[in-house]
Simulated scan of single mutants.
Amino acid sequence: MQPNTEQPAYFSKYENLHFYRDEKGILEVKMHTDSGPFIFTGTAHRQFPDAFYDISRDRDNRIVILTGTGDSWIAQIDFNSLGDVTNPREWDKTFWEGKKVLQNLLDIEVPVISAVNGPALLHSEYILTTDIILASENATFQDMPHLNAGIVPGDGVHVLWPLVLGPSRGRYFLLTQETLSAQQAHQLGVVNEVLPSDRLMERAWELARQLAKQPTLTLRYTRVALTQRIKRLATEGIGYGLALEGITATDLRNAE
């Protein structure tokens, strides 16, 4: 049975996401800001949990490719758009959205490919929820925003980076705000393939089409099997990490 080729309503619902799905059920999700490189904002923080939920519940999606636009994956953030994070009531919204975005990413029960098209300086934990990670040669990986803002890196990076790098190297990466090149990330086992920029999406689609030859239930249940442990660790750690991050955010009012 072929997937439904009619575009669902959510394809035009989110201002920072462009969706394209082919006849095999391969869904490409491209983050962008006004069709250019994606700048992370409060709007994206609010909308991404719903977007990934919509993707997860659409059973016509058989493989998902997540990528950015232009020469960056996520390299910029509009801090002002996030609201007053020193206000506990405002942080409560961030707390809920931060939990749900990773839960809903992990609830996408089909294989997910990350095509990291440039610097991934924030919310790199999204990448680490995916099954195949491809990176362009100009990609870099860093947790830029947390310590720069004086708050705990507790939105999932504290769970997933030590998981993929190992506890000691993962803590070093977060505490020093280390920047990993695509080649270093490949050597450390974070990235599966490093490619020229002009080959990145071609390779992502090549792998997606290879996977699409499998029966749909095989695709779905393989993803379920491969993410079971990650989902458990995420459930255990993300709410606690965000609570600690929120404490340090509210303490910014007292910072000199």
Rank of each mutant, 00 (worst) to 15 (best):
T5E: 07
S181Q: 07
I151L: 12
S168Y: 03
Y14G: 15
Y221L: 15
D143Y: 01
A243R: 10
K93V: 05
G239F: 03
I132E: 07
S72H: 04
L244G: 07
S197Q: 14
F95M: 03
Y53S: 14
K93Y: 05
D107I: 04
R57D: 01
R223F: 02
A243C: 08
S81Y: 00
I127N: 02
A120R: 02
L211K: 07
T33K: 08
Q183S: 14
N104E: 06
F52L: 14
P8G: 12
E178I: 05
V29P: 11
E15M: 10
W205Y: 12
R232G: 14
I39A: 09
L105G: 04
P162A: 13
L217Q: 13
D107Y: 00
Q103Y: 04
E206L: 09
T250K: 03
G241V: 06
L180M: 09
I133F: 01
N87D: 12
P215F: 03
V194A: 04
L233I: 10
F141Y: 08
G156K: 03
Y221I: 15
K100T: 01
P119E: 08
L66Q: 01
G150E: 08
T227H: 07
T41Q: 02
H45Y: 03
Y126C: 13
Q184G: 11
D198M: 08
N117G: 10
I108F: 02
Y20T: 15
V224Q: 14
